[in-house]
């Protein structure tokens, strides 16, 4: 744990591709997201056990290897699914926009907001309110002491890694109808995730939540109001936060 996992963009993209393929046999997007999440979780677990574990203690090596694996995943996707963008169909009943105060807004995006809230609440309950979550927190805070108390930290971290991979994969499917699966999706998504985490603070769920909100709003309104700054605006809040709070808004460790 405690390392920046740079495969998340690639896992998101892999999820979108697997989701698009799964949807050819499974007619339901949510079911496809669950199946894809499970598949990506297994792949993540294999990667964690066979590669990351061998580098334990070597943080820089681990970060580099996650980046390397993300390139491998990206090119494998290209080999398997080809270079053309592949659409992920939107569920039938969410295809029409809804009208709110005379403005059209896509129903599917509202559904994604609801799913995001459910996922966030679920994660919060898991980490902060369950025994498993307490063990994870203990393992992250002080691995040796947790081990001494009989917590199977190693197995626990594999589980957490799988869960993270599953979420990234499932998110790829849920994001699919908006973004489609295409080569380069990984690189488009990864910076967003990194910015959110750095802004919110590493190791803090609440921080990630706030970080995501700030990033989303600043980016959306920034692009609309200052279109010429579209590239910078995403990074501005992050730079400001790092300058004054190197640990991020709610971080436990330095980013």
């Amino acid at each position: 744990m405690r390392i920046a996992n740079l495969t998340h963009g690639a896992l998101f993209m892999l999820g979108a591709y697997i989701g698009a393929s799964t949807l050819k046999t499974v007619p339901n997007l949510w079911l496809a997201a669950l199946i894809t999440g499970a598949i990506v979780a297994v792949l993540g677990g294999i990667f964690e056990r066979l590669v990351l574990r061998k580098l334990s203690g070597n943080v820089l090596g681990q970060v580099l290897v996650t980046l390397g694996v993300s390139f491998i995943i990206a090119d494998l996707c290209l080999v398997v699914w080809g270079g053309d963008p592949i659409p992920v169909p939107t569920p039938e009943f969410l295809r029409q926009p809804v009208f709110i105060a005379g403005l059209a807004f896509p129903a599917y995006r509202l559904a994604v907001v609801v799913i995001a809230v459910i996922a966030a609440v679920g994660l919060y309950v898991l980490i902060e309110r369950t025994r498993l979550g307490a063990m994870i927190r203990a393992g992250v805070d002080d691995m040796e002491m947790a081990r001494a108390c009989g917590i199977p930290v190693s197995r626990l971290f594999t589980t957490v890694f799988c869960l993270g991979a599953a979420l990234a994969g499932a998110a790829g499917v849920v994001g699919g109808p908006i973004m489609s699966a295409y080569p380069g999706l990984d690189a488009d998504m990864l910076p967003l995730a990194l910015i959110v985490v750095i802004l919110g603070g590493v190791g803090s769920l609440g921080g990630a939540f706030i970080g995501a909100f700030i990033t989303g709003f600043v980016y959306t309104f920034g692009v609309a109001m200052l279109p010429d700054l579209a590239y910078v605006i995403l990074f501005l809040p992050m730079i400001l936060v790092i300058a004054f709070r190197p640990r991020g808004l709610f971080g436990k460790f330095a980013a």
């Binding site: 926009p97 896509p106 908006i178």
Partner: peptide, 11 residues
């Protein structure tokens, strides 16, 4: 491709 799909989505 992606723009048109989202364009359509927004009605």
């Amino acid at each position: 491709f992606r723009y048109l799909r989202q364009f359509n989505e927004y009605g």
